[in-house]
Design a protein around this nucleic acid. Structure first.
Lengths: 219, 219
DNA sequence: GTCTATAAGTAGATAGAC
DNA sequence: GTCTATCTACTTATAGAC
């Protein structure tokens, strides 16, 4: 018998809870938090409707935990790459840019949750609320500060404000292309080929090249 | 007496209808289409709840008309700038980029609807559905095709796929920075100054410079 | 921990008076 | 065209049996 079940056939504490979080990631990402119903989530999780209340108390609290579970690994991967950079005494701009770009592109390949996590993140970013802004701040503020500090180190000739602006351009470019390549995105006319068969390592290098020269401009 | 009212004090056909569309732009943009209720919209429009059904038949149909009213001017401004470019026999890359960047940044300043229109567009892009994808295709496909054609003309040394990818990077950078500068966006730590007092003509030039050098990279 | 049943609220849509 | 009143169909959340 599965270790997760006791002799009554009931699931362990954590089983249903995890199934709910996993299902919520996809249902929220696909339909949007507001349009998604708890019934859809519990159906996808193979759980009973009352389980949400038992494990999370409310829909909002389920969103909080789901987002945290999504953003945690996302943040960890990005922060890890950036901290590896930080250890480098003289990181090149390209090294820093790779640490910004690669984790996002790579996670967007993971269909077991990474891609949905990114979709949920983008959707949540596009519709700011108190609850989610708070979570974003907890998850990403350190990463963004560190990233700007590393960019500054790799390009000491630029002012702080310039760095901050260009960091945003870079983030925009990456997030947008990652969203475009999601199979759920609208097919752009004349871009179908790219949306369907871009090689990801080539894409990473291409974005980095674009950002590198853009970032180094002196105008 | 106002020409819009007849002797019974009732509004002209178009008055309530327009108030509803205007209110829907803001309510949908602020709260998200799914979370927004028709009662909020009608309250904001100073209209009766039944007016939506009379003028638009359903919430979905109100969204369709609202989006079309928002995206129409957005598209017209961008398409106009790009067509002006098309008239130029030898447009520089910078000229083409300005036609891509300037209309969006300028419209994001317009608090009478432009900014809300952009917010609604971004939010709608982040949560694709059949209804809205259809509207996006009608509104923007021509613009995107033309933009890529003009970029190709300004940078004939690049391949079609390169142009398409880099056009997406550029769009991403612009849309992201425009979203960041919206007062409704989350305050980014260490970016508050930029979010609060960036001069828009300086911003346009800065984005263009970033994109221009990035676009011209030969790697 | 999980289930059924239900409470309590609110949504979009509509009928019909004016 | 506009209004009030209401219908129907959900929703989240919960109480209580197992």
């Amino acid at each position: 018998m599965d270790a997760a079940e006791d002799r009554t056939g009931r699931h362990d504490d954590r089983d249903t809870r995890r199934a709910l979080l996993h299902a919520a990631t996809f249902v929220f990402a696909d339909r949007g938090f507001d349009a998604a119903t708890l019934r859809e989530v519990t159906r996808a999780a193979g759980a009973n409707i009352a389980a949400v209340n038992y494990h999370f108390r409310s829909k909002d609290e389920l969103l909080r935990l789901t987002l945290e579970q999504c953003l945690g690994p996302l943040n960890a991967a990005r922060l890890g790459a950036m901290k590896a950079c930080e250890g480098d005494p003289q990181p090149t701009l390209r090294t820093v840019l790779r640490a910004i770009v690669a984790p996002l592109v790579e996670l967007s390949l993971d269909e077991r949750g990474g891609r949905a996590a990114i979709r949920l993140m983008l959707q949540t970013k596009a519709l700011p609320r108190a609850l989610t802004n708070e979570i974003f701040a907890e998850q990403f503020d350190e990463l963004h500060r560190l990233s700007r500090r590393m960019l500054q180190r790799a390009a000491p000739e630029l002012g702080e404000a310039q760095i901050a602006l260009r960091y945003e351009y870079i983030r925009g470019a990456i997030l947008h292309i990652v969203a475009d390549l999601d199979p759920n995105a609208r097919r752009m006319p004349g871009l179908e080929d790219i949306q369907d068969h871009v090689s990801n390592s080539a894409l990473i290098d291409d974005i980095i090249s674009f950002c590198e020269t853009g970032f180094s401009t002196s105008d």
